[in-house]
């Protein structure tokens, strides 16, 4: 059965984040109660995802290298590592090293429930690996090509492992042509455990209701959203089960696509150590 390979230090997984850093990402969008630039929403999502992955893979002695992670930015004349600080310029980095090297740890104020029905303002530590950048066009096709070469090397070196997961975070407005064929080529790489998984997080100002893991493009607000939906891989069955256990309605054709909603929960879809189980 595909997508059941063990994820461990001897069989590490590969996570590639593609981050849209084009000028259009400076446009605002409504996220929760406040309005934020799309780029900020996306960099927050990446930083949270990296924290989430690190906590998920933390053991007594520290964060284990269950994954190797790349954060690739694409924007003005540039496709390459978006890490800042000690990891700047690097592509795939073992997770333990990622966890130990955020560019900085910010103190953010946050209102949290005080347990007695009220809210209280506190500060929370927020590790940051990348800041929002917005500049120039959206070379998404090139970015997918970049991921393609990383992935090709990875599957060559890890032919029996869990297939790489590529998560593209974008507003969808590719400026270097239709990215569909690049996406198909990327998703055609495979290990013995299955083909590469390409997921998309679409941040958009088009409004409409946030959508998480849809099984049809109907109801998506614009052509960008539909294009990204079509590019996204169908969720493997055990991931569907987790999505279902988190309250999402899923079916056979549910895809790894999220529109204007939180995608951090995708980390919970990954099984480490135990067998991929069909939850209920």
């Amino acid at each position: 059965m595909p997508y059941t390979a063990e994820i461990s230090r001897t069989n590490p997984g590969c996570f590639i984040f593609l981050v849209d850093q084009s000028a259009s990402m400076s446009d605002p969008m409504v996220s929760g109660e406040r309005t934020q630039a799309r780029a900020e929403v996306v960099s927050d999502a990446i930083n949270r995802l990296l924290t989430e992955l690190s906590v998920k893979c933390a053991k007594e002695e520290g964060v284990r290298d269950y994954f190797h992670v790349a954060v690739i930015g694409y924007g003005h004349n540039h496709v390459g590592s978006a890490f800042q600080g000690a990891l700047a310029g690097r592509d795939l980095v073992p997770l333990g090293e990622v966890a130990n090297n955020p560019a900085r740890v910010e103190s953010r104020t946050k209102k949290v429930p005080d347990g007695a029905g009220g809210l209280v303002e506190t500060s929370v530590q927020f590790p940051v690996w990348m800041d929002p950048v917005t500049n120039g066009g959206t070379p998404m096709t090139r970015a997918l090509g970049y991921a393609d070469s990383l992935v090709a090397n990875w599957v060559e070196a890890h032919p029996s492992g869990f297939p790489p997961i590529v998560l593209n975070l974008t507003d969808g407005e590719s400026t270097d042509g239709d990215p569909t064929s690049a996406a198909i080529s990327l998703a055609s790489h495979a290990t013995a455990d299955g083909a590469v998984l390409l997921f998309n997080l679409h941040v958009s100002g088009s409004g409409g209701t946030p959508v998480t893991f849809p099984d049809t493009e109907e109801g998506l607000p614009d052509t960008y959203a539909r294009l990204l939906f079509q590019m996204s891989s169908v969720l493997p069955s055990h991931m569907r089960s987790y999505a279902a256990s988190q309250g999402h309605r899923v079916g056979e054709t549910t895809r790894g696509f999220v529109y204007n909603a939180d995608i951090t929960s995708i980390v919970e879809f990954l099984d480490i150590g135990t067998r991929a189980t069909e939850l209920r």
Binding site: T51, C57, A58, G62, N100, Q125, P127, G273
Partner: peptide, 12 residues
């Protein structure tokens, strides 16, 4: 933990 705040030991 050294960097990421409260130190977790995680399982699935």
């Amino acid at each position: 933990s050294p960097v990421l705040g409260p130190k977790a030991i995680s399982g699935n």
